[in-house]
Each structure stands twice: as structure tokens, then as C-alpha cells.
């Protein structure tokens, strides 16, 4: 077959049509590959997300068994201005303000301490990061025991607040925050360690030769060069802290006298849904939490990205 005859056979098909058909085929294949992921996300993320907006529009009577009725947007204002919700919001903000900076500073300090070429340093790295694999239930039981007024570590150290820390209106929230900080520490350490690996040794060596001491090198070189990592860690841990639930549920519970002092948003939402049987109010609170997290993330990105130095 000659070249000319091949050209003759090809020429009736317009090039544009062939390209369009190929693109359509490729798009079809792409959607097919995406389908399993879309099914999982659709079922467990997108459907609940949109269903939540629907729930906001219905009020459930306090008596069990009666059907929910449509109230539109009327229950939003009363819910978000209720004392229960505003107190819960303040408690959550205090909780986040305790957990995020402390866990990040400690994580950074441990990462810096472990970022050296020493024999056996890998063991320390493993210990420092180990909290990331312990479940909130295990962490809560361990800390519950340590804070126990009879067999715990605190009374053994001579610290014995009355009433005990987890039943004390002043100490209950900080105690829960300590557990959460301990849990976050592993993740914070891992993120900061990964960030430190990306800081070129040559920069620190150049600064050392240029006359910078260890403290100056840390503040003037390491921290600015680590700012993308710190920025990421602040966002992730703030979102996680806003969603804390396990430690409060296990250590405090909804029967405790200090419940209102540790009533973080997620815990309040779960209680409103399950104990008070009020899905509408719970959906409104969940939406507020979503908006807070979203706006906080946007704010942090806008504010921090101006100060972030990308190497």
C-alpha cells in the first residue's frame, strides 16, 4: 500500500472530530476510574454534608416519637444565641487556645532536640512521635489514672486539688487540654521534624560562619525557613482541636458536675442530637462549627501567607 493511498483513506475523517471523540473517550475513562472514590465520598461525606442543611430546617418535638416539622430558618437565631451554645463556643475557643500553641511549641522543641546526628537518636524520635498512634481512648484512660485522686501520679507528687482535677470546675478543661496536647504532640513532632529536614544544612552552616549563635540561628534562620511547616501545622491542629470529642466524653461524661465547663462544640452537638433528641439544633451547631473552621482557615491563610517565607 502506498503512502498516497493511506492518505486517501484517512482524509474523509475530519481531524477535529477525531480529537473530540478521543477526548470524550478519555473523559469517560476518567469518570469510570473516579467512580469508586466518588461513591465513597458521596455516601459518607457529601450526602451527610448536604443532609445537614436540610436538618437545619426541621424542628423535632421534645416528646419522642413525634415527627419533625418544617420551620425554615426560624430556629437558627434562637439556637446560636442560646446560653448553652455560646458557653460551648467560649469553652471550645479556650480549649483551642490552650491546645494549639502548646502542642506546636512543644512539638517544635522536641523536633529541634531530635534533629541531630547522634547515636540512638532514632529511639527518641520514635518515642516523641509515638503518641500519634495511641488512640484517644487509651490516652484518656492513662491520663484518667494519672489524675486519679487515690491511685494517680498527681497525689503521689503531693498535688491533690479538691475536688479532683477532672471534677474541678477550674482544672477540668485544662486537664482535658493536657491530654489532647499529649495526643497532638506526636503529630506536631512529625510535622516539625519533616519541616526541619527541608531546611538546608548549608544555610545554618553559613549563618554559623557569619557569626550567628545557636539562638540567633534558630530564630533568624530555622523559624523563618520553617514557617510554611508551622503555617500548615497551625491550620491542621486548629481544625483538629475544634473537633475534639473523645477525651471529654471518656473523662468527663454528661453526668459530671463540670460538664458545662468542658462542653466543647462537638460534644455539645452530640449531646444535643442524642440526649436531647434535637437534630435540627445539632445540625445548626454543626454548620456553625463548619463555618468557623472554614473562615478560620481562610483567615489564617490570608494572614499567615504574608509572613511565610518559601525557600
Amino acid at each position: 500500500m502506498t503512502v498516497a493511498s493511506v492518505e486517501m483513506r484517512r482524509s474523509p475523517v475530519p481531524k477535529e472530530t477525531t480529537l473530540r471523540a478521543r477526548r470524550r473517550r478519555e473523559a469517560g475513562l476518567a469518570y469510570l476510574i473516579l467512580l469508586p472514590a466518588l461513591a465513597v465520598f458521596g455516601t459518607f461525606t457529601f450526602y451527610p454534608f448536604f443532609r445537614n442543611f436540610k436538618l437545619m430546617l426541621y424542628e423535632t418535638p421534645p416528646v419522642p416519637g413525634l415527627p419533625a416539622h418544617y420551620v425554615g430558618l426560624h430556629q437558627i437565631i434562637p439556637t446560636v444565641t442560646s446560653t448553652q451554645f455560646t458557653q460551648s463556643l467560649v469553652t471550645t475557643i479556650v480549649f483551642v487556645a490552650l491546645v494549639v500553641p502548646i502542642s506546636l511549641i512543644l512539638g517544635l522543641a522536641l523536633a529541634v532536640a531530635a534533629h541531630r546526628k547522634l547515636k540512638g537518636i532514632a529511639i527518641y524520635r520514635m518515642i516523641f512521635s509515638s503518641t500519634v498512634v495511641s488512640s484517644v481512648a487509651v490516652a484518656s484512660v492513662v491520663f484518667g489514672t494519672l489524675l486519679n485522686p487515690v491511685v494517680g501520679l498527681l497525689p503521689w507528687l503531693g498535688i491533690n486539688p479538691t475536688p479532683p482535677a477532672l471534677e474541678n470546675t477550674t482544672w477540668a478543661l485544662p486537664a482535658v487540654a493536657v491530654i489532647t496536647i499529649w495526643q497532638f504532640l506526636g503529630l506536631s513532632f512529625i510535622i516539625m521534624s519533616a519541616g526541619l529536614q527541608s531546611v538546608p544544612d548549608e544555610l545554618l552552616e553559613a549563618a554559623r560562619i557569619d557569626g550567628a549563635g545557636a539562638w540567633t540561628r534558630f530564630w533568624r534562620m530555622t523559624v523563618p525557613l520553617l514557617s510554611p511547616t508551622i503555617f500548615f501545622a497551625v491550620i491542621v491542629s486548629t481544625i483538629y482541636a475544634f473537633q475534639s470529642f473523645g477525651a471529654v466524653d471518656i473523662l468527663i461524661g454528661n453526668q459530671s458536675a463540670v460538664r458545662l465547663h468542658t462542653n466543647v462544640l462537638i460534644y455539645n452537638i452530640v449531646n444535643t442530637l442524642q440526649v436531647e433528641n434535637n437534630p435540627g439544633a445539632a445540625a445548626i451547631m454543626a454548620t456553625v462549627l463548619f463555618l468557623i473552621t472554614l473562615s478560620l482557615t481562610v483567615l489564617q491563610m490570608r494572614f499567615l501567607e504574608r509572613r511565610v517565607h518559601y525557600a
Binding site: 538546608p200 548549608e202 544555610l203 552552616e205 560562619i209 517565607h309 525557600a311
Partner: peptide
């Protein structure tokens, strides 16, 4: 004073 292969300029 040292000049490094990668220059080691402080990027920030």
C-alpha cells in the same frame, strides 16, 4: 568567610 556551592543565601 565561606562561599558555598549552593551559595547558601538566606532565602527570606
Amino acid at each position: 568567610a565561606m562561599v558555598f556551592q549552593s551559595y547558601a543565601l538566606y532565602p527570606h
